[in-house]
């Protein structure tokens, strides 16, 4: 592989990193569906078809109140969308789902048809991590799909490094913890020790349905149904696994690096 044809090939291909967030976001696969939208008005009180069909009991019907869909527990299997007679629950094809508070993920009340997107960090943390955020990833049970999609962010197409965001080897060098998986009992000690090893100020990101509420394994006695019980979580990114675009959007929203292009709410 001589030097010559590496350089030649490189010049021919040019830069393959996407323009986003300066340019338009790459399209989600058409059958992906993106975030769910719940219009409580359309939902008639008597039917509870979606509640029975959801594999992770993400949909609940509190008495007297319209349907409540917890996007944190949802694994985006879209069973409820197909089975709902009145199309109260629809797919919005919107990749933006990251939130700062856990309760923002519960949709259904008036005004909460869609996810309230995450605000940026407060002034002090943003000044500190705005242009240099080093994350330490901890995989605590789960199925390795979220890790794969976080790895994809490092490839030349997404190129996370251009935002100054980098995954580092030692927690001593890290500013934040990115947790995937429902935190099995066997990984509880390791997660706590990693969190302690991080120097303050530090942030925690729960990535994927497992890390938020246990994902497809919700309720199993072998794990803690997500990281929020063990460490204070600053950012929730739902999905099973969340599309790389959703993860990147969450990270940039946290650092207020999205620019004016599509900052909504």
């Amino acid at each position: 592989m001589s030097v010559h044809d590496t350089l030649l090939n490189r010049l021919k291909r040019g830069c393959e990193t996407m323009a986003y967030p300066k340019g338009p976001a790459p399209a989600l696969p058409d059958r992906h569906g993106g975030a769910l939208k719940v219009e409580a008005a359309k939902c008639d009180a008597s039917c509870s078809a979606c509640v029975t069909v959801c594999p992770t009991e993400a949909i609940a019907r509190p008495a007297g109140k319209p349907v409540a869909l917890d996007l944190g527990r949802c694994i985006f299997c879209a069973e409820c969308v197909t089975v709902c007679p009145t199309k109260a629950i629809t797919q919005s094809n919107d990749h933006r789902m990251a939130v700062r508070q856990r309760e923002d993920l519960v949709l259904g009340d008036t005004g909460k048809e869609q996810v309230r997107l995450a605000q940026a960090l407060d002034e002090k943390l943003r000044r500190l991590f705005g242009r240099s955020l080093k994350l330490r990833q901890v995989s605590a049970a789960g199925c390795n799909a979220c890790e794969a999609d976080t790895n994809v962010l490092g490839t030349i197409g997404w190129d996370l490094g251009r935002f100054g965001i980098q995954f580092v080897a030692s927690p001593r060098h890290a500013d934040g913890l990115l947790i995937t998986g429902p935190v099995s009992k066997n990984m509880e000690l390791a997660l706590k020790k990693t969190y302690i090893a991080l120097p303050e100020p530090r942030i925690v990101i729960a990535l994927g349905a497992c890390a938020i509420a246990g994902g497809p394994f919700i309720g199993h006695p072998q794990h803690h149904n997500g990281a929020s019980g063990l460490v204070p979580v600053d950012l929730f990114i739902p999905g099973c696994p969340p599309h790389p675009l959703t993860i990147l959007d969450g990270l940039l929203r946290l650092l207020d690096r999205l620019g004016e292009s599509d900052a909504r709410r």
Binding site: L7, C15, R131, S132, I156, G164, Q166, D175, P199
Partner: peptide
């Protein structure tokens, strides 16, 4: 990074990293 066809971190990124490390606590 450019040789790998990616945009890569900006050359002055190292300044930001050093400035951030200076501000952070130590363990």
């Amino acid at each position: 990074a450019k040789l790998q066809n990616r945009r890569g971190p900006r050359p002055w990124q190292v300044y930001f990293d050093i400035a951030k490390f200076l501000r952070k606590d130590m363990v």
